[in-house]
């Protein structure tokens, strides 16, 4: 199945999970998601998600000056973001469990 379709539903929680470990700037988040295995994640999708989470109050942002180039915009978690991550993580785990249960190989009945 096309990973991008699956990603749409879980990009929020994925971004939150990445930032919960450590603050990061846009491309940094993209790279960490890809390194984690979400290879199909789109740059712009991540930026947009960051912006939406920021507007929703789940993220805070700050600018870090850079000597050699343009400034970097870092994002970090707010308490509200942490709560959101817990809730969405919970519902994801429940969903994943259901899917796993649904997709497990048919057991041969005795």
């Amino acid at each position: 199945m096309d990973q991008t379709q699956l990603l749409k539903g879980v990009l929020d929680v994925a971004v939150l999970a990445v930032l919960a470990r450590e603050d990061g700037y846009g491309y940094d988040v993209v790279r960490r998601l890809r390194n984690a295995g979400l290879h199909d994640v789109g740059d712009a999708s991540v930026y947009g998600t960051l912006r939406r989470l920021y507007s929703a109050g789940a993220l805070t942002s700050y600018v870090v000056p850079s000597d050699e180039g343009p400034h970097r915009k870092y994002y970090g978690m707010t308490p509200s973001g942490t709560t959101m991550l817990e809730q969405q993580g919970k519902s994801w785990r429940s969903f994943a469990e259901t899917m796993q249960h649904l997709l497990r190989p048919t057991e041969v009945r005795a």
Binding site: Y25, G26, Y27, D28, V30, D43, Y47, G48, R51, Y54, S55, V63, S66, G69, P70, H71, R72, K73
Partner: peptide, 13 residues
Amino acid sequence: ELTGGLEADLTEL
């Protein structure tokens, strides 16, 4: 908000 930091990210990319 949407494009701030984009330049730095794209440069890195």
